[in-house]
Amino acid sequence: TDVTFHVNGRNLHLKGADEELLRRIEELIRRGADIEELEKAVKEWEK
């Protein structure tokens, strides 16, 4: 799945995201995470 999140005026584009990653990103956004936290979560998922 390709999806782009718009967070605090910045874009986080995910290519090939699975349901697990999407749920994790949505949860972080609900908690008020900043873009750096979201990018870190994506990097951890990519490993």
Rank of each mutant, 00 (worst) to 15 (best):
D18H: 10
A33Y: 14
K47N: 11
I35F: 14
I25G: 00
N8M: 05
K40M: 12
K47C: 07
K15V: 10
I29K: 01
D34S: 07
R10A: 11
K15N: 05
D18S: 15
E26V: 15
D34L: 07
D2A: 03
K47H: 11
K47I: 12
L21S: 02
L22A: 02
E36M: 06
I29S: 02
G9Y: 02
G16S: 08
G16E: 04
A41H: 11
E27T: 14
L22C: 04
D34K: 07
V42L: 06
T4F: 06
R24K: 08
K43W: 14
V42R: 02
E19I: 13
T1H: 13
R30L: 09
I29W: 13
F5G: 05
E39T: 07
I35A: 02
L38T: 01
E26P: 03
L22M: 07
E46C: 10
H6M: 10
K43G: 09
I35N: 02
W45V: 04
W45Q: 04
D18F: 02
E26N: 12
E26W: 15
L14R: 00
R31M: 09
V3A: 06
A33M: 10
L14H: 00
G16Q: 08
E44Y: 11
A33K: 10
L21P: 00
V7C: 09
V7L: 05
V3N: 03
L12C: 01
R30K: 08
I25P: 00
E39N: 06
L21V: 08
A33T: 06
E19S: 13
A41I: 13
R23P: 01
E20K: 14
V3W: 11
E39M: 10
I29C: 03
L38F: 03
K40A: 12
L12G: 00
G32R: 04
W45R: 04
R10Q: 14
G32T: 02
D18A: 11
E46N: 14
L14I: 14
L14S: 00
L28Q: 04
L28N: 01
H13C: 07
R23H: 08
R10D: 06
T4I: 15
D18C: 06
A41C: 09
K43E: 11
F5P: 03
I25C: 07
R30Q: 09
N11K: 14
V42T: 03
E27Q: 12
W45L: 03
I25W: 01
K43N: 10
E39R: 06
E39H: 07
E46L: 11
